[in-house]
């Protein structure tokens, strides 16, 4: 069974009356790394938010089906949704400055999801949090555990966010532009980290990005979104080698290459 199956998803925001997503079909298999690319406003983030359940607050009209492990996220009662998604889906947002609560120690935030969804004791939670912090490559986890977010660098913060998403071993990690706010060397480290986590634990990754080179580095398959629709999808290398859709061609042409400067 596919981990995620989206069928004819449509999202229309009440505030603007605009249809942001216009009939998206998409599947994610367990352990698959899928890149969702497109320009700002193409509907890629809205699609991911519908999947993560962050959209259902009367702000938008949704239709279609969004199945996560066979359960329809759009019609599922909230309590049930919470029980499925809390442990099942982790999210890494774009801006590591705001992804962590500035007033709570990093370690407590990494543990948060365990506190909500498991019966582990405080010591066991701490143990798991430290473990996750080691896995994401945070230095001196014992010390970092006690720190506040402002005491970490941008890259470390993003690692802490990944640790908090990973600590419960979810089935799917949604990464919304996870490296956009980071400098280039840190970007590559974070992408390597995400890949190794995905391979080691069999976690599926949905990477949302406007940056094709980031997608190419991490994902084996890619879907290209344009104006609320998926215009092209396939194996990443195939799409790069022979893009079928005109928009995809233009996107690929927009990647800066070294040759042009030489």
């Amino acid at each position: 069974m596919a981990l995620v199956e989206i069928r004819d998803l449509r999202v229309r925001f009440h505030s603007t009356g605009k249809e942001a997503v216009r009939g998206v079909d998409m599947t994610i298999e367990p352990g698959q790394r899928l890149g969702l690319v497109g320009e700002s406003g193409s509907g890629k983030t809205v699609t991911a938010m519908a999947l993560s359940g962050l959209l259902q607050r009367g702000s938008a009209a949704l239709s279609g089906q969004v199945l996560f492990q066979g359960r329809d996220v759009l019609t599922c009662p909230r309590e049930e949704l919470r029980a499925i998604q809390g442990p099942g889906i982790g999210v890494v947002f774009q801006e590591p400055m705001t992804s962590l609560n500035p007033l709570i120690r990093v370690g407590c935030q990494v543990e948060e999801v365990l506190r909500l969804h498991t019966d582990l004791t405080a010591d066991q939670r701490r143990e798991r949090a430290l473990e996750a912090m080691v896995q994401v490559g945070l230095p001196e986890p014992e010390v970092t555990y006690e720190k506040y977010p402002h005491q970490l660098s941008g890259g470390q913060r993003q690692r802490a966010v990944i640790a908090s998403a990973m600590v419960i071993h979810p089935k799917l990690l949604i990464c919304d532009e996870p490296t956009t706010a980071l400098d280039v060397t840190v970007q590559i480290q974070i992408l390597r980290l995400l890949k190794s986590i995905s391979v080691r634990y069999g976690v599926a990754i949905l990477l949302i990005s406007h940056d094709l080179s980031v997608v190419r580095r991490l994902c084996e398959s890619v879907a290209v979104m344009y104006r609320g629709r998926i215009v092209e999808r396939g194996n990443t290398e195939d799409v790069f080698a022979s893009p079928q859709d005109d928009y995809t061609r233009r996107l690929i042409a927009a990647i800066p290459t070294r040759k042009r400067h030489e």
């Binding site: 029980a83 947002f93 992804s99 609560n101 007033l103 999801v113 909500l116 969804h117």
Partner: peptide
Amino acid sequence: SLDYVRSARLMGAGDMRVLFRHILPN
């Protein structure tokens, strides 16, 4: 609308927990 609140909600924190533990202290 800040990410830390969205991520707390996504992790499954209830409304009151989000409001009182996360938002109000901030």
